[in-house]
Design a binder for these strands. Structure first.
Lengths: 187, 187
DNA sequence: TGAATTCACTACGTTGTCGTAGCGTAATGA
DNA sequence: TCATTACGCTACGACAACGTAGTGAATTCA
């Protein structure tokens, strides 16, 4: 082996892939576009990634970052903090497009489905931890189904921003948190 | 005018378009596929629809049907009935795929965006009516923000089924309804 | 230094989709 | 009846994306 594959070319390609994903969405994602944008030759891209689809998957994998587990001492504070921390991320329109595209495409492509599952788990884990902590403090009933509670915490927020594209300010965040708390406590 | 465009060809094409949409998703939707499936010649399809995209939009338009407004006399009953009526529809995997595909594609295509908006409104209206009825009966506070409540009713359900693909039985439906009620009342 | 290999570049063949043209045939209105 | 028009069929040109070949220059290991 005289010359190893340069990590620089790989990273430039991945970075450009993420950019293309943001601006053109999953359906506009092409190897040609990534090559043009990155300055890395298409042939070189194929040396690093066996197919366009694998490039896509790796790019998505790099975009996914876990959220920190909120820990303010009370469930109400935790939920508000959680929404606050996710909001700027989810408010980005191109990110919305990318996420929805991945979710939709995951229905057809088994590899993307795996990525989708990972994404979900990464996002759900801190929420679940948050709920377990609250239960430990006695803020929630011990027999509460945490799996359902998960949907209850994330669902309204997700639906409003991703599906209905309605705005969400401080007032709405507090209202949501209050409703969620009451719902979980009363269950 | 010697011979009008046959409604039969149009309807056969539309029906096949819906089938293709179900089996192959939005990304697999092509005029050729519809032509092959319907038995209607591609050229004929173009006589009825100015473009493949217009065929797609018309097909989706035909698929969307409004849900009846639940009216059991109590909000709890209404919510359970609502979930019950939507469940079989949303449990259909191909329908899930189609819907998510439309939502994702709507981010790029303004015409699809319009269809998406119509779809949403058609679905949200009965829920809003249901909430207004409950408020009229005194089951909800008069100052409740119905727009937020909408997300609160639909969100958890949507998130669980469409995004996380988790199962949902009688027990979960009742648990959801109970949580939603408590959340709305406590807000 | 020198052999090997990656890199960028251009170009190609393949495939799939779009929308259209031309052709006979069949159906409809005047 | 008969002119008109839709129908199905086959084929085509345009275009975009895929993945690959070949070239010369640059880089790295031995």
């Amino acid at each position: 082996m005289a010359r190893p594959l340069s990590t620089e070319a790989r990273e430039k390609a991945l970075a450009a892939a993420q950019e293309v994903l943001s601006t053109d969405g999953v359906e506009g994602f092409t190897v040609d576009a990534v090559a043009k944008r990155s300055g890395v030759a298409k042939t070189t891209i194929y040396r690093h990634f066996s197919s366009g689809n694998e490039l896509l998957i790796n790019a998505i994998d790099c975009m996914v970052t876990p959220f920190p587990t909120p820990n303010t001492g009370s469930l109400k504070g935790d939920i508000e903090e959680f929404i606050q921390s996710v909001l700027p991320f989810i408010d980005d329109h191109s990110m919305q497009r990318t996420m929805m595209g991945v979710i939709a495409a995951a229905a057809s492509d088994p590899e993307l489905h795996r990525v989708h599952q990972e994404m979900m788990q990464l996002r759900m884990t801190p929420i679940k931890t948050m709920l377990e902590l609250a239960r430990g403090r006695g803020e929630l009933r011990p027999d509460l189904d945490l799996d359902l509670a998960l949907d209850f915490v994330e669902g309204p927020f997700f639906f409003r921003k991703m599906i209905r594209n309605e705005p969400m300010g401080e007032k709405e965040i507090r209202a949501f948190a209050a409703m969620i708390i009451h719902g979980l406590e009363g269950a």
